[in-house]
Computed example of a mutant assay.
Amino acid sequence: MTVGCFSEYSHFIKIDLNIKTMKDLFSQHSLLYKQARPNYSIQILKEILQHVPENSFAWDCGAGSGQFTQLLAPYFDHVVATDISDAQLQHAPYFDNVSYQVQAAEQTSIPTQSIDLVTVAQAIHWFDFEAFYLEVKRVLKPQGVVAAIGYGLIQLQDAALNRLIQQLYFETLKDYWDSERRYIDERYQTIPFPFQEKAVPALSLHYQWTAQQLLSYLNTWSALKHYQEQHSDDPLQLISTALKTAPEYLDVTFPVLMRVGTVKK
């Protein structure tokens, strides 16, 4: 499908850039990432859409395998979803009005002042902030909106399992997280955000997961992969053992991280 000035987005394109771009930590395990990562709630999008005056064009940046793109598709005439990982984008769901593009966040072929909403879900902490924000300001329409969305550390209702998750995160993997992870721990409140900020409510994602779903999710952690590259032991062993006697379904929660703004006048 082609729509107006976005006709060039009807196929995949790849651009070589001589600028700092986001780290690609997830291409090698792109299918696992798609299957195991939590889905975003429609409530998150509806909170953002309250501030978006037009619904013609959206840009989902750092789209991965389309976890947030699939929410945008029914609400916009056209969505451009970009990521530096072709492998991730290949696992994204198909929609007539969505074009998936292999492009860096900091420099795209998106036309100037053409976008109503820019979204970044669980990815902005990997970006070159200054370069990305210049690109956002270039492509946004005068009343356009930018939203950075994410989710924090998983929380389990089962106290014993939750302690093991905390131990894994803060102790076992302490030295294996990329430095950018601190922005997640700080709930995106310390990322630069040079926009006129909008008030957003505190939200959470709630699920009932099986033991296998939990283990699959933990296996997507970049720090876990860094650990496994240097050690032969299984950092999930204690959790795996505890899960053998756990209930069939586990109540899990993720705190939602969200910053929403418009270009300052």
Rank of each mutant, 00 (worst) to 15 (best):
L140W: 09
I48T: 08
D83W: 06
E186Q: 15
E106T: 09
L203R: 08
L250M: 06
F6L: 15
F26N: 10
M258N: 01
W221P: 02
I15T: 12
R187G: 00
S30Y: 06
A199G: 00
D60T: 04
T172A: 06
A81G: 10
D251E: 14
A73K: 02
Y94I: 08
I42R: 14
D60C: 08
Y183S: 02
L214I: 07
A160Y: 13
V200W: 04
K14L: 06
Q103P: 00
Y217F: 15
I239Y: 05
A87D: 12
Q166C: 13
L17K: 15
D128P: 00
F6E: 01
V146D: 05
I15K: 15
Q167P: 10
P192M: 11
D178A: 04
S56C: 12
P74D: 10
Q167L: 13
I44K: 11
I19N: 02
L224P: 01
Q28S: 14
L215A: 01
L71W: 05
V136I: 11
Y9R: 07
G62L: 06
S41W: 09
Y249R: 13
P38D: 09
V145E: 04
P93I: 05
Q70W: 00
P142L: 03
N219L: 02
A242P: 08
Y249W: 03
G152N: 09
R163Q: 15
V136R: 10
T108R: 04
Q143G: 09
I19R: 08
P38A: 12
N18F: 00
G64W: 06
Q122D: 07
F76G: 04
A92P: 07
G4P: 02
P235R: 12
H29R: 13
T210K: 06
K46C: 07
P93D: 06
E106L: 02
G261N: 02
A159H: 12
Q167K: 15
V146W: 00
H231T: 03
Q237W: 14
T69L: 03
D116C: 06
Q208S: 13
G150L: 09
A121D: 04
S216Q: 14
